[in-house]
């Protein structure tokens, strides 16, 4: 059981966990032969900070009433969350390689009835924040101090329903809600700014009456600091706009839109596993890919 709100976790240990979590993601996707590495890899540092320091939860009792809730709105990044859940002990790590296979508990996109620790079914984009609002409202009605975290993609913010929900969170002053935006600026057809730009994102959220924190999405320490600030903010919802790199941690996937929804073949998988290490800040390869 994790009580959460741990302000002095062993950062080194958390960083080591990210390597194991990335390994899990890659082995799941490689075994499946399809799936979404880019957006799974980009949220690893955040999910690690969340599940192993901030969140109150119990992997042995996924339905624990007092748990904090995590809603993955960008459902295609399911393998990222699956690997974190396995690491935390919701189900055996051996399950990861059954991803996307018939009768697997790990569906191609999250299905709440199939997987311990998955709170909502998602995949069709733009719907998770609304559900997170509903849960936050329900918790408030019940006088609960549990909190709700919602993980959004940046491309997903092109869905109008998200902005309906953004209005609701602020209108209802949901300070028991934290949204996290994976701002890697890549979607299937190219950069988010080229396809349909969302900048200036922080200003947009501010105009919608949110508390906005911009954060380095690959620094565990930065995430923890931001989560603490979010926890201390009263009267409005908080969004963490996390500057991330799609495909982070696998040099040849970093900053490449084409790695949104393609699984590594065996050769690529082996190279990726070999190159895994603790990431902190931009890698050389990532900068080169961005320039190219």
């Amino acid at each position: 059981m994790y009580q959460g709100k741990n302000e002095t976790p062993d950062i080194k240990k958390l960083e080591e966990l990210t390597v194991s979590i990335r390994r899990g993601i890659l082995s799941a996707l490689h075994a499946a032969g399809s799936g979404h590495p880019g957006g799974s890899l980009s949220m690893v540092e955040f999910l690690t900070a969340l599940y192993f320091a901030e969140l109150r939860h119990d992997p042995k009792n996924p339905d624990w009433e007092k748990r904090d809730r995590v809603f993955l709105s960008k459902g295609h990044a399911g393998p990222g969350l699956y690997s974190v859940l396995a690491e935390a002990g919701y189900f055996p790590k051996e399950e990861l390689v059954t991803l996307r296979k018939l009768h697997s508990i790990l569906q191609g996109h999250p299905h709440r009835e199939k997987t311990p620790g998955i709170e909502i079914s998602s995949g069709s984009l733009g719907q998770g924040l609304g559900a997170a609002n509903g849960a936050a409202l329900g918790l408030r009605l019940d006088g609960s101090d549990s909190r709700v975290f919602c993980i959004l993609g940046d491309g997903e913010l092109q869905e109008g329903s998200i902005w309906e929900a953004i209005m609701t969170s602020a209108h209802r002053k949901l300070d028991n809600l934290v949204a996290w935006v994976d701002y890697n600026n890549l979607q299937i057809d190219g950069t988010v700014e080229d396809v349909k730009g969302i900048a200036p994102l922080a200003d947009k959220f501010k105009a919608f009456n949110w508390n906005v924190i911009e954060v380095d999405g690959h620094s565990i320490e930065a995430q923890l600091k931001a989560l603490k600030k979010a926890r201390e903010t009263k009267g409005k919802p908080t969004v963490l706009i996390a500057k991330t790199v799609k495909g982070k941690g696998v040099c040849f996937m970093e900053n490449k839109a084409e790695w949104h929804g393609v699984a590594p073949n065996t050769e690529q998988y082996e190279a990726a596993i070999k190159g895994l290490c603790i990431v902190n800040g931009p890698s050389k390869q990532q900068a080169e890919n961005a320039e190219a």
Binding site: R69, F71, E119, I120, G126, Q127, G128, L129, G130, A131, A132, N133, G134, A135, A136, L137, G138, L139, L141, D142, G160, S161, E164, A165, M167, T168, H171
Partner: peptide, 17 residues
Amino acid sequence: GIAEQDMLSTAAGMAKM
């Protein structure tokens, strides 16, 4: 408000509670 999609999503979240 005039936001049917948001209503359904919010309802789904509340039903979870």
